[in-house]
């Protein structure tokens, strides 16, 4: 029994996703531990993003269950929920492989949009806010404070009023993470957060993720190809290949798992025979 099986924040049980005749994910089960940084790795086309889309409700799984255990004891079955409810009620936030910021809105506005639901309640679904009743004004100030807090974390406070589309690629990546954090998630799903980042930006990203894990009650699951990022920050690695889990464990364990080496990591030419023998391909 590993730590992530004791107190999982998300249990993926027998998840299967078929697109017509194509089985993108086949009977996949794993746990995401509370407070862990979990990495989902695998070759291109292994079904990693499909898993994300199932967790965040953008796809409805063909079979299987996704059980979200919130820290307040609530249980949510994600496969039954509408995508926006998953973020609003089950507190699962995500970012996208191709960044999806609101480019024509300012950086601050991007973070304000993320706090839509609490602000809607505070404004009595617009009616109270329109009439100037209730605590909308105060909630609005609080929301700006939250946004400022995250802007300081990602070092963009000086550019708060600039349009998001003007930011550099690395800044956009971090802004997208900050925006997801503004929804107050308990599980943060990051789809290739380090893709296209230079080493310095990659390091900043690592620090940001470590900070989120440490200071907020948020577990992180990320898809990543950059093994240095995966090995450095993750507590738990799940490896997919052709929609099937081929390995699941600590980074150390996974790195030395011959199945993973054969399917994904690769070895020097002279070691190929040895690995093939271990896995059973001869």
């Amino acid at each position: 029994m590993s730590t992530w099986d004791n107190n999982p924040v998300l249990k993926v049980e027998h998840l299967t996703m078929r697109f017509g005749g194509l089985t993108a994910i086949n009977d996949l089960s794993f746990n995401i531990g509370r407070g862990d940084i979990t990495a989902l790795i695998g070759p291109n086309g292994a079904g990693k993003t499909t898993v994300f889309n199932c967790i965040t409700g953008f796809y409805k799984p063909t079979e299987g269950r996704l059980v979200m255990n919130r820290s307040n004891g609530e249980k949510h079955l994600l496969e039954r929920m509408a995508d926006f409810k998953i973020t609003a009620d089950a507190k699962v936030a995500r970012t996208f492989q191709n960044i999806r910021l609101f480019g024509g809105m300012t950086i601050l506005e991007n973070l304000m949009v993320a706090q839509h639901n609490p602000l809607m309640v505070a404004s009595n679904w617009t009616v109270g806010g329109l009439l100037g009743l209730g605590g909308y004004k105060k909630s609005n100030v609080d929301a700006i404070e939250t946004a400022k807090y995250w802007l300081e974390r990602i070092d963009l406070i000086d550019r708060a009023d600039a349009p998001a589309a003007d930011l550099s690629y690395g800044d956009q990546r971090r802004l997208e993470i900050a925006r997801a954090m503004c929804t107050g998630p308990e599980l943060l799903c990051l789809d290739e957060p380090a893709a296209g980042l230079n080493p310095k930006e990659s390091l900043e990203l690592n620090n940001l993720l470590q900070y989120i894990r440490k200071e907020h009650d948020t577990s992180v699951v990320l898809i990543e190809h950059d093994m240095s990022v995966v090995m450095e920050i993750s507590d738990h690695v799940v490896v997919l290949d052709y929609g099937v889990k081929i390995s699941d464990g600590t980074p150390e364990f996974v790195k030395n798992d011959p199945h993973v080496i054969a399917a994904y990591l690769g070895v020097e030419d002279d070691e190929v025979d040895q690995v093939e023998e271990e896995v059973g391909i001869v």
Binding site: I86, R100, F102, M112, S123
Partner: peptide, 27 residues
């Protein structure tokens, strides 16, 4: 006034990117 309220920002966010809106919990 609506533009400065959550609903107005949600409208503009919807114009910018509907999928991102849904990922942020906006109905």
């Amino acid at each position: 006034r609506l533009r400065r309220m959550p609903i107005g920002r949600a409208w503009e966010a919807l114009r910018e990117d509907e999928i991102a809106c849904r990922a942020l919990g906006i109905n």
